[in-house]
Design a protein around this nucleic acid. Structure first.
Lengths: 334, 334
DNA sequence: TTGAAAGCGCTAACAC
DNA sequence: GTGTTAGCGCTTTCAA
């Protein structure tokens, strides 16, 4: 269990331990025969650099803190996957923290990450209030948010163009012949405000009446969507399509519609937002707007690296383009 | 960006920095007035312990390496969620690494984690060969596996009772009146071998004929299941139920059945294994065998802590009980 | 009860 | 090209 250190190798090689350090770091200040001999020896002795000692002197840990409300959520876990891969390919490792369920936890983990001396933090905020919540800490270390909720804050973030996503989705329904499109979802956060705006913009341009069915739930889930949709469907269906502001809600709508024998897509077209994995499953095949998770993660890591490595100041709002994923829940009208 | 250290606080308080350290660590060797004064000062100055420095002297990082083939997989991300929560509640943080797609990566990340001086490693192995692959490293630090594939190895693991899972699933189908049950899936790994054994045991006890449809794919996915099922369904259906060795395969089977107008559950009952999130989605409602992910994660963390904190030697194989989740894909016969 | 000092494993500046 | 040494921020003997 006792690991071999630079000193051990130095003694075995009969050189000073600075020399071993040089050999390993690829310094030019060393004879190539010595270097090779030492490298070989390190290998034989099973030496591995102690990163905590190195971090100590370098004042850099090559560690990125990743904070998500909960990793047990398809959207977050996809982001995490790409973020970890990308980070590691650049020599960084990921320290993972779930920030849920409350704001207190979120603050706690960010603080903790700071104590761990992470070089930067990547955070999927819990709520629009997250920025204020963790501000005192986020100012002490390079931080990049993954959400458009920060829109008016002097903070870097990467996000999909939520407004445009709703816009293209609505337009798609229009092109399919739909003229009565209901927007279903909450509008509490900036993200959802923007989605609603995209819908409104499309309606204005296309001469459609705007119709909203608002959720008061603070959190979007299949079950919320389901409860709400049961209410909705108990009244007359004077619309032919629903734009759901999240896939979770759309899935809940689908469940309620099935139970109440409302045929999707023949009686009602349905489109979601996010493109979570479940939407592509057999029998579901939900048409939706894709958030480019991979690109978001990669860009966020790059942005963070730029801050860390080049000390880039200021902030940037990086907006990526959403795409329409056509599947089976929308039908042409007429 | 410059953080405040013990020395800064000591200077401000007019004491030696050893005293500040004592105040913070709750040592009894200090006057209570001094302690309070110092703690207050630390708070005011925004002091946070530098964990890398502490780790250096303590020779302990309070870090657990979590290695999963890919966090972008519902099963792994659920495990990760519970593992992180549990670990953090005990003062540990999680360093996350994706080990996929090949064995080389897996070895690389484990090595890397060792360099990071993690106190222990939690690993969901990629394959039955993982143990041999990382053995040289796993011997150097407390390690717990999350999979039954290690069955014959002197290594600690936590896993569900795979054999029993298949047994209760098969028995359930029998009780529903099914007498011709097909087992669908691969048998390359110990995990899958055990599942097949559970099925065989049930068949023997119940006097059922054993019928297998083997997958040669090394990796279970919806698409593999789908391809295979199309083949399967092109021949006559001389069975009334299928036990799929994984939910992914079951989902693929469902897709193929839908396309070929084989009614599930009326013409064919279907049961899966794992209880991944998608199985509970509307329209899918797959009956399946649940792996208790939360309990697995918590137990694995506890086991690891025991090794780390008490230096417990040897190994333990912790087998948890699976449960049957009845949903909509199995129907009584006759 | 408090201070002084050693040392964790490493990098880098400075000698030779 | 190689050795010596200081020091990163902290915990913990050992003295006082």
């Amino acid at each position: 269990m006792k690991s071999v250190t630079l000193k051990d190798v130095a003694k075995a090689a009969g050189v000073s331990y600075a020399t071993v350090s040089r050999a390993l770091s690829g310094s030019p200040q060393i004879g190539s025969e010595t270097r090779e001999r030492i490298i070989k020896l390190c290998d034989e002795m099973g030496y591995t650099t102690n990163y905590v000692a190195r971090s100590m002197v370098m004042k850099k840990t090559d560690l990125i803190g990743l904070v998500v409300p909960s990793i047990d959520n398809q959207f977050n876990s996809e982001l995490a996957y790409y973020a970890e891969m990308s980070a590691r390919s650049h020599g960084y490792n990921i320290m993972l923290c779930n920030s849920g369920p409350d704001m207190k936890q979120e603050k706690t983990v960010v603080k903790l990450l700071l104590g761990r001396q992470v070089d930067g933090i990547l955070i999927v905020p819990q709520s629009p209030k997250t920025y204020e919540n963790i501000r005192a800490y986020a100012d002490q270390v390079p931080t990049v948010f993954l959400s458009e909720n920060l829109r008016d804050q002097p903070q870097s973030y990467v996000a999909v163009d939520n407004s445009r996503g709703a816009y293209i989705g609505t337009k798609y329904l229009y092109e399919l012949g739909h003229r009565d499109i209901l927007y279903f979802g909450r509008r509490h956060s900036t993200t959802h405000q923007l989605r609603a705006e995209g819908y409104m913009k499309a309606c204005q341009e296309l001469g459609l009446r705007q119709r909203f069915f608002n959720s008061e739930f603070s959190h979007s889930s299949i079950n919320n969507g389901y409860q709400l949709a049961r209410d909705l469907f108990s009244k007359s269906l004077d619309y032919t399509a629903i734009f759901a502001s999240t896939d979770s809600n759309a899935l809940g709508i689908m469940k309620a519609a099935d139970e109440m024998h409302i045929d999707i897509p023949n009686r009602l077209s349905l489109i979601g937002f996010d493109n979570i994995t479940a939407t592509g499953m057999p029998r579901i095949e939900l048409t939706t707007i894709e958030q480019p998770k991979r690109e978001m993660a990669v860009q966020a890591v790059d942005m963070l690296r730029d801050k860390i490595e080049n000390g880039t100041q200021g902030y940037v709002h990086q907006i990526l383009l959403p795409t329409l994923i056509k599947r089976g829940t929308c039908r042409p009208l007429g």
